[in-house]
Design a protein around this nucleic acid. Structure first.
Lengths: 192, 192
DNA sequence: TACGATAACCAACACTATGTTCATTTGTGT
DNA sequence: ACACAAATGAACATAGTGTTGGTTATCGTA
């Protein structure tokens, strides 16, 4: 990415394509978007599209991939050892990361069902959580633990998604605290 | 559905198309499957396909829609009043429902990310849970409750999905009990 | 069993998007 | 200013789409 995008022209065309892609995605489902229409909207030669992407799905994948790499960088900054202790801060950081990338977050939440991004996020967090569990407890009760980990990870990601759909208004710090309570204490405090 | 599918010919072609669709889906992603290839595999005239479906996505939607309607019938049999009391049984029933429809369940879990079925299931359970909450508690703390409900619903659905991917081996009754514990008591018993 | 209805078949059709080519023009980094 | 690379525009063969009309085969029912 660094090597290739040195050229201003490349950055410009990619940006134009992405903007038009976002607009189109707000109008119709992904499978109805054609290269022809996209490039006409962006006022880019159709051939140029194929210099950068294989097809529409490749474009979508690249966008999600880049967002995902940034996400990994964010949670990497918290080290692997203290995920449990810093649960609240990590979650808050993720919420605030999405807020900073509002434009893409909205694009992704426009996909009718799940996006690749969130699916990657789920398996990444699952992987990390599982390895931490095994580091601490070995393989004891690992099946139940796997289901529970899967349960809470999916829960958190779904919180992220509905938070986005609600307009990202609630404070990231509060959302992080909420997520932590859901994960560690269940519904106790919510149901009273 | 009842009116049209009286004719044996229709049932037969639809079945053939679905079988070939399942096979193709195991080979390649949905967006790479063409009507032409599908009908050739099924040994059905291409024009016949268009008598029943608008396009590939319509075929996929109809399959998921039918499975979803059966699902709704299953949870409807538990009445709306006692969702909370019968949590375990309802969840067990859902697990066992998917086990009975193994073939379709596997098809759906083959979609990388975009299964309409599970997305419908999520919003349906969410809707029911929310209305039950409001019936019992009014609108008190409804925001936190909404996030928590979203959290656990997504968690349960994700349990279903990973259970399918593990081969549906664990007993539906046990899975139902596990889900209930996760929902009501959080990780307490799992983490010890 | 016979009959009217209709689903499936077949061939053909125009149409659209795809992916690739090549020569040309424009803009870039150093 | 220069060499290089990206973007353009036009053209092309290809493949899938969606629909047509006429024919054959199969269906449900009386």
């Amino acid at each position: 990415m660094q090597q290739r995008d040195r050229d201003r022209r490349i950055r410009k065309t990619k940006q134009l394509l992405r903007r038009s892609f976002a607009v189109l995605l707000a109008e119709k489902p992904l499978e109805d978007i054609t290269v022809k229409e996209l490039t006409e909207r962006a006022d880019i030669n159709r051939g140029t599209f194929y210099c950068h992407y294989r097809d529409i799905y490749d474009l979508k994948d690249q966008i999600e991939r880049e967002l995902y790499e940034e996400f990994v960088a964010v949670i990497d900054s918290y080290g692997v050892d203290n995920l449990r202790q810093e649960l609240r801060s990590v979650m808050a950081a993720v919420f605030s990361f999405l807020q900073r990338n509002k434009e893409f977050a909205v694009i992704i939440s426009n996909y009718k069902a799940d996006s690749l991004f969130f699916s990657w996020v789920r398996s990444e967090i699952f992987r990390r959580g599982l390895s931490e569990w095994q580091r601490i407890y070995g393989f004891r009760d690992s099946l139940q633990w796997e289901y529970y980990l899967d349960f809470v990870v999916a829960g958190c990601v779904s919180m992220l998604q509905s938070w986005i759909k609600k307009g990202m208004r609630d404070d990231p710090e509060e959302m992080g605290a909420l997520a932590e309570r859901f994960i560690l204490y269940g519904p106790g405090e919510v149901l009273g």
